[in-house]
């Protein structure tokens, strides 16, 4: 996955020339990480595959437009994330402005008593409503800033932050509830 700057530049140059092997190398280098983004965002394996395929088609088609070869990784990732957001948009996911969201009764959860494991955190995230899950994934896993997330989703930065805080709260709640049941 880690390529030197020169390797990346060469790869992009070969893709621009239509070299099929270069396209395959590009795909092999990014497919796994990008598929994981799609899985997290779409929350459904079949949807994730469709979105990944659409996104790579777009990458292949537009590789000539990539001006700085060194930014290949971030460029591919942004196309994949945008395709995921498009997919969710088609499924009618709305991000409401914070002013219009009815504030739920927030309860503080004593997290110290609940064990965090990769499996239970993953499962709790997958149970989040789509809006919360998207903001949480973009911030914690894809490492975009609140400002970038706000721009991507067409919401204000404060809404992005509030949605993220509530998403975390909800994750903790789900983990707690499950452990009580167990």
């Amino acid at each position: 996955m880690h390529q030197s700057n020169q390797d990346t530049t060469n790869l992009v140059v070969r893709c621009r020339k239509g070299d099929v092997r270069a396209f395959q190398e590009l795909y092999n280098a990014y497919a796994k990480a990008m598929y994981n983004i799609c899985l997290r965002m779409c929350n459904h394996a079949a949807d994730a595959e469709d979105v990944l395929q659409e996104a790579f088609t777009q990458v292949f088609k537009n590789i000539a437009q990539l001006k700085e070869e060194q930014t290949l990784s971030a460029w591919v990732k942004r196309i994949v994330v945008n395709h995921c957001l498009n997919h969710l948009r088609k499924k009618k996911m709305y991000f409401e402005d914070v002013e219009r969201v009815e504030v739920e009764e927030e309860q503080q959860i004593d997290e110290t008593q609940h064990a965090l494991t990769v499996a239970n955190v993953k499962s709790a995230i997958s149970e989040l409503p789509e809006g919360y899950r998207t903001v949480l994934n973009l911030y914690l896993f894809e490492e975009y800033s609140h400002r970038e997330i706000a721009t991507m989703l067409g919401i204000s930065e404060s809404t992005a932050k509030t949605q993220f805080m509530r998403a975390k709260e909800k994750v903790r709640q789900i983990i707690k509830d499950k452990q009580v049941v167990l």
Partner: peptide, 13 residues
């Protein structure tokens, strides 16, 4: 992703 995906993508190059 599943291995078949590249075969589908190759046609889109």
């Amino acid at each position: 992703p599943p291995p078949g995906l590249w075969a589908a993508l190759e046609k889109e190059i």
